[in-house]
Amino acid sequence: MVEIKTPEQIAKMREAGLVVAEALKACREGAVPGATTGELDAIAAKVIADHGATSNFLGYHGFTGTICASVNDVVVHGIPGDLELKSGDLISIDCGAIVDGWHGDAAITVLVGEGHGPELHELSRVTEASMWAGIAAVKKGNRLQDVSRAIESTIRRQPLPPKGKYGIIEDYGGHGIGTAMHMDPHLLNYVDRGRGRGPKLVPGFCIAIEPMVSLGTPHTHVLEDEWTVKTNDSTWAAHWEHSVALTEQGPLVLTAFDGGRAKLAELGITAAPDPLG
């Protein structure tokens, strides 16, 4: 069942989303050559604690981090630890927080230091652009599949990188969010006509939109730690995510500092007013 939120509950989710935004901002600034993924985890943990929130990642089914730190060919669910970042790396950082029982969840991809080829800049740009296209499709009267279509079509329209292709990761996708981090419905980042059009989007509908894209295969495998997800062909991947609420006035990006106003305006969409002012 899809959990529909009241405006007051969306305001609480906005509080959680802003904590996540602050944690990811601090992690982005800390993702420099020589930093370890464990140090980034400690940065996020401090931000969350300083805001009186709690982590929804730490302890989740036994996960040992406050963030997922996924480097290079790791798509998602990388466990933070002693791995030292070096110039030229790509890291996707996923983070979540809880405020008064309400969840926020978002992810960014950071190019560490210098020395990245244009294909890595494009990989991150294309993945982020597809996320915003999906967010723009969160409107009254649409169905969940319309969000999937917007994500996939944005990726498919892009010029292919010189030495590869864009693989839309198949085994992982977005999800409902609210009183739990992962809720119905599951959001594919591509259209699967066999699943139907999905639920109708109505005010109070909240979802985490998170495309994951590789420079090669859409197929992945999980390492022996039962968390770390890598691409089967070792190509590098990017991951971007925002939590979004549909209100009577339009979409509100709960985990963006400006509620998504600037990016949505570029797409001709007016973001909903921020319930926190």
Rank of each mutant, 00 (worst) to 15 (best):
G17N: 06
G17S: 12
L18A: 11
L18P: 09
L18G: 07
L18E: 13
V19R: 14
V19T: 11
V19M: 11
V19W: 05
V19Y: 09
V20Y: 09
V20D: 10
V20E: 01
V20H: 04
V20P: 11
A21E: 14
E22H: 13
A23N: 01
A23F: 04
L24S: 03
L24M: 00
L24E: 03
K25W: 12
K25F: 13
K25N: 13
R28C: 08
R28D: 04
R28T: 12
E29Y: 11
E29D: 15
E29K: 15
E29C: 10
E29I: 11
G30S: 03
G30T: 01
G30F: 05
G30L: 00
A31M: 05
A31T: 04
A31V: 00
V32E: 15
P33L: 08
P33H: 01
G34V: 13
G34P: 12
G34K: 13
G34M: 13
A35R: 01
T36Y: 02
T36V: 02
T36S: 13
T37L: 04
T37G: 03
T37E: 03
T37F: 09
G38C: 04
E39V: 02
L40I: 01
D41K: 11
D41C: 03
D41H: 09
A42Y: 02
A42S: 13
A42H: 05
A42C: 00
I43F: 07
A44Q: 09
A45G: 01
A45I: 07
K46N: 12
K46E: 14
K46M: 03
V47Y: 11
I48E: 05
I48H: 05
I48K: 08
A49S: 11
A49H: 08
H51K: 15
H51F: 06
H51L: 01
G52D: 06
G52L: 01
G52I: 00
A53C: 10
T54G: 12
T54M: 05
T54P: 02
T54I: 11
S55D: 04
S55P: 06
S55Y: 03
N56A: 00
N56D: 12
N56F: 10
N56E: 07
N56P: 10
N56V: 08
F57S: 09
F57E: 03
F57Q: 02
L58F: 15
G59V: 06
G59I: 04
Y60F: 14
Y60D: 13
Y60N: 10
H61G: 04
H61R: 15
H61A: 14
H61V: 12
G62E: 10
G62W: 02
F63L: 01
F63R: 00
T64E: 14
T64Q: 12
T64D: 04
T64H: 09
G65T: 05
G65P: 07
G65H: 06
T66L: 00
T66V: 14
T66R: 08
I67M: 08
C68E: 13
C68A: 14
C68W: 09
A69K: 05
A69R: 03
S70E: 03
S70R: 03
S70D: 06
V71A: 10
V71N: 06
V71Y: 00
N72T: 04
N72G: 10
N72F: 09
D73F: 10
D73N: 15
D73E: 14
V75A: 07
V75M: 02
V75D: 07
G78P: 07
G78N: 14
G78A: 11
G78C: 07
I79E: 12
I79Q: 15
P80G: 03
